[in-house]
Computed example of a mutant assay.
Amino acid sequence: MLYTYAIIADYEPRQAESLIRIGILPDAPPRCYRHGTLAAVASEVPASEFGPEALPARLSDAEWTRDRVLAHEAVVTDLLQAATVLPMKFCTLFSGEPALFAALDDHGDRLLAAVARCRSAREWGVKLFFDPERAEQADAATVSLSAGAGAAFFRRKQEARAKSQADETRLAECVADVHEALARRARDAVLNPPQPPAIHRRRGRMVLNAAYLVGTDEEIGWHAAIENMTERCARDGLGCELTGPWGPYNFVGGGLVGA
Rank of each mutant, 00 (worst) to 15 (best):
A225P: 00
E17M: 07
A147M: 05
G148L: 08
S120Q: 12
G237W: 00
L145S: 14
D188E: 11
G215N: 10
T77V: 07
L38R: 03
M206I: 07
A198Q: 08
F153C: 06
G51H: 09
E136C: 14
R117G: 11
L128D: 10
T4N: 08
D10W: 06
A162K: 13
A135I: 04
N228D: 07
F154N: 06
V115F: 04
P52C: 05
I22Q: 12
G221F: 01
A183W: 02
A9H: 03
L104E: 11
A99P: 11
I24G: 01
G258R: 04
A211T: 03
S60L: 11
A9L: 08
I199Y: 06
G254W: 07
C174I: 05
E168D: 13
A103V: 04
R68V: 15
D78S: 14
E12P: 00
H35V: 06
A114F: 02
Y33G: 00
S48R: 12
K89V: 01
A149D: 05
L213R: 01
V178W: 00
T84K: 09
D78N: 12
T4H: 04
A71D: 11
D10G: 04
T37Y: 03
P56V: 03
D139G: 10
A176L: 15
F154L: 12
G23C: 09
I8W: 00
R161Y: 14
A6I: 02
P87M: 02
L100F: 04
P193C: 14
L59R: 12
E136R: 14
A116H: 03
L104A: 15
Q81L: 07
Q195G: 07
G23Q: 06
N209T: 05
M206Q: 10
Y5I: 02
S60M: 08
H72K: 09
F129G: 03
R117W: 04
P196G: 06
T37S: 12
D217K: 13
V257E: 09
G254P: 02
E73D: 15
E63H: 15
R156A: 08
A114R: 00
W222R: 03
P197I: 15
T77W: 10
A181K: 01
F94I: 12
V115L: 05
R155T: 13
R232L: 10
A114T: 03
E133P: 13
L171G: 07
K157A: 13
A149Q: 04
P248I: 04
N209C: 12
A71I: 12
S120L: 03
A198C: 01
I8S: 05
G253R: 11
A183D: 08
L238I: 05
E159Q: 14
A176I: 06
Y3A: 07
I7P: 00
E63Y: 11
F154V: 09
Q137P: 01
R68A: 09
V214M: 08
R201Y: 08
P98G: 09
A172C: 06
E63V: 14
Y3F: 06
A28G: 01
D131G: 05
G215I: 02
I20Y: 00
A40H: 04
E49S: 13
C118W: 01
